[in-house]
Design a protein around this nucleic acid. Structure first.
Length: 412
RNA sequence: CGGGAAGUAGCUUAGCUUGGUAGAGCGCUUGGUUUGGGACCAAGAGGUCGUAGGUUCAAAUCCUGUCUUCCCGACCA
């Protein structure tokens, strides 16, 4: 991709509204632009990362046998009356009316719709289990949106739902999703911690959250320094210095960003919305449900929070918007441009995502923008081009060395 | 929703106390000089000072309402 054609509005100064590192840098690097409180546009560079995260999620969920569908964001009140949540959800539910004055809402979550989708199909235990997921924009009229993409009123989420006949089958799927999540976040370059959490107003038996440890996280995590025990403080009620309930070790607290959760729903929605199957004994039983969410836009934000430096971003390999950034120092210099274009074409032919900064900018501006954008490998084509050499920087290692085109092509 | 802060050009902001009709830096346009870490010189374009009302001969400035944004809290599958 030629940078002259890519819309990357970088800024020297962060908008005064931005408070946390990720928000400042994502704005400065031209990834996102705020539209209103908690509402953002994803610009090309940011959207490329979003799509990478989505790709990883799709691969890992397809692997465990979940299938993707797409549900409506706009949902009629009737469905929410069936579950009783039209009255219970409160002002966080974005409500609106159509031209006939009929009530609708913009989905903050999709239990009602997914249950409506499957209930007519699910008539026999033989059709179970079933695991469905979608990637979609969610709407929640938060009292206080904050920290850029951390808590938005509109955000991108992957939500999945399982339908099983027995608790044991639910447990199996719960574990599958837990393992898939671990793989997903690892591939996204994030260090996460699994913590037990409250089941909340929703009821159910068990819930876990996937946390990215960060000082801007909204949740307080209690964990044991001696064993694997970890729980959201809302759930454990433990404090710093308390004894670990598992091994008797010492409890420590830290803040975390919740990027994913998995939840054993039970029969709350299948009962209220009449999603029942006939079991082997000929009895009508409500299906047992589980739900599993990943905040995709929040994952993007958490990654920036975890990887960014004061100079700019630095993307993990699997979600970087481009792998290689080629900077020809002087676009009017034929030697520079010929060498840069040769590299660009050859690398692209190898299937590598390459961005070439072909803009008529001065070297300094190109370096600064490149630092901000955080593409992990940088190739500077400049004063050594006449000898057929370029400067190659691996930004993970902060190492720079002179290389020939052949060296570069061998490396990738 | 309670507490606090702030709205002046695309971004950062000065001016407000003490009213006299808006200034800078970055960015943008044109010309020239530059050309390896956000260049320099010159000439330009760009603002109903969030908005509505009030006080006044006169309001970015004072008063009131309102909207928006941010921070803390409460809230949050």
């Amino acid at each position: 991709m030629k940078q002259s054609l890519l819309f990357v509005p970088t800024l020297k100064d962060a908008p005064s509204d931005a408070e946390v590192k990720s928000h400042k840098l994502m704005t400065r690097a031209g990834l996102i632009k705020q539209v209103a409180a908690g509402i953002y546009s994803y610009l090309p560079l940011g959207y490329r990362v979003i799509k990478k995260i989505e790709k990883i999620i799709r691969e890992e969920l397809d692997k465990i046998g979940a299938s993707e569908l797409l549900l409506p964001a706009l949902q009629p009140r009737d469905l929410w009356d069936e579950s009783g949540r039209w009255d219970k959800y409160g002002p966080e539910l974005m409500r609106l009316k159509d031209r006939k004055d009929r009530d609708f809402c913009l989905g903050p979550t999709h239990e009602e719709v997914i249950t409506q989708v499957v209930r007519d199909y699910l008539n026999s235990y033989k059709k179970l289990p079933l695991a469905l997921y979608q990637i979609q924009t969610k709407f929640r009229d938060e009292m206080r949106p904050r920290f850029g993409l951390m808590r938005g009123r509109e955000f991108i989420m992957k939500d999945a739902y399982t339908f099983t006949e027995t608790e044991a089958d639910l447990d199996t799927w719960y574990q599958k999703f837990s393992d898939a999540y671990t793989a997903i976040f690892k591939r996204c370059g994030l260090k996460t911690r699994i913590v037990s959490s409250d089941v909340g107003q929703i009821g159910g038996d068990e819930a876990d959250e996937f946390m990215v440890m960060s000082e801007v996280g909204e949740d307080l995590i209690t964990y044991c320094t001696d064993c694997d025990y970890a729980a959201n403080q809302d759930h454990s009620k433990l404090n710093d210095g308390d004894d670990c309930p598992v091994c008797g070790g010492t409890i420590t607290t830290a803040q975390g960003i919740e990027v994913g959760n998995i939840f054993k729903l039970g029969t709350k929605y299948s009962e209220s919305m009449n999603a029942k199957v006939i079991n082997e004994d000929g009895q009508h039983i409500p299906v047992i449900m589980g739900c599993y969410g990943i905040g995709i836009s929040r994952t993007l934000m958490a990654s920036v929070e975890q990887h960014a430096t004061d100079k700019g971003l630095l993307w993990p390999d699997e979600i970087t918007p481009f792998h290689i950034h080629i900077l020809p120092i002087n676009v009017n210099n034929e030697t520079h441009m010929t060498l840069a274009n040769t590299l660009y074409t050859s690398l692209k032919e190898k299937g590598i995502e390459v961005l070439i900064d072909d803009r008529k900018e001065r070297a300094g501006s190109k370096f600064k923008d490149s630092d901000l954008m955080g593409i992990p490998y940088r190739i500077v084509v400049g004063k050594d081009a006449k000898n057929g050499q370029v400067e190659f920087t691996n930004r993970y290692e902060s190492e720079t060395s002179l290389k020939t085109i052949e060296d570069i092509l061998d490396f990738f």
